[in-house]
Design a protein around this nucleic acid. Sequence first.
DNA 1: TTACAGGTCTTGT
DNA 2: ACAAGACCTGTA
Length: 263
Amino acid sequence: MIEISAQYFSPKDIMKSGQCFRWHEENGIVTVPAFGKMLKMVPDGDRVLLTSSEEDFDLIWRDYLDLDFDYEKIEKLVDGYADSHLKEAYSLGKGIRILKQDPWEVIVSFLISQNNNIARISDSIERISEKAGKFCDDGVHFSFPDPFDITPSFFEDRSLGLGYRVPYLTHICEYVQNNPGWIESLKRLEYEDLYEELLKRKGIGPKVANCICLFGFHKTEAFPIDTHVKSLLDKYYPSGFDHERFKGVAGIIQQYLFYYEIR
DNA sequence: TTACAGGTCTTGT
DNA sequence: ACAAGACCTGTA
């Protein structure tokens, strides 16, 4: 059992902030699958209890949950430079962290997300895990399948409900298999180069590429603009949103704005 | 029944 | 460069 501060860490807000699709919450307990492991998180006053060994915490969860990033710095930026709307959004979403999820799962997830709704996205990803994933260490939940553990045609399975996105998923799976080391090589790129590289793949446009940069590679300067963000920008920042105030971390700011907008 | 959902691709100017 | 229009499909 590990105990961490809840000051900049809210499992529920992270779960609902749209960056992950396989977290679940029941009776206040949030369950998290990642890298073949399963974590339960229980908020307890100003602390959050994690059902993890010290070893797994240091090996996986500390990094995955982004616990070493300085979110106090973000708060100072918001206090110093934010407009009233952003300050309001921040006060709701300050418990959000940008997870360091498996890039492959993020690529697949956000390919599926295009022109789609959250419920169906989650269903598809859950089905993919059930059909092709392995058991997590709890022997109950499934992990997200490795690209080398499936065939590209796997995505054609109609019960996955992937619709017209099937060719995109088939392509990316084929590409990863034919270019082993591609994803590892992406980890060494700067944001701009990573973004350009992702755009080369079929079905990955500006929005999906930025989501992958932000949620799969922790490029905190990536600023995905979807329908919600576009509408909020038009509504609250008609003369333009000044990214310069939050240079290098605008993507985190985007999450607060997005979360506030969908709530 | 029709419209919508964390967009992207293709085609026509 | 830029603006339509098409696109799977579950849900309301």
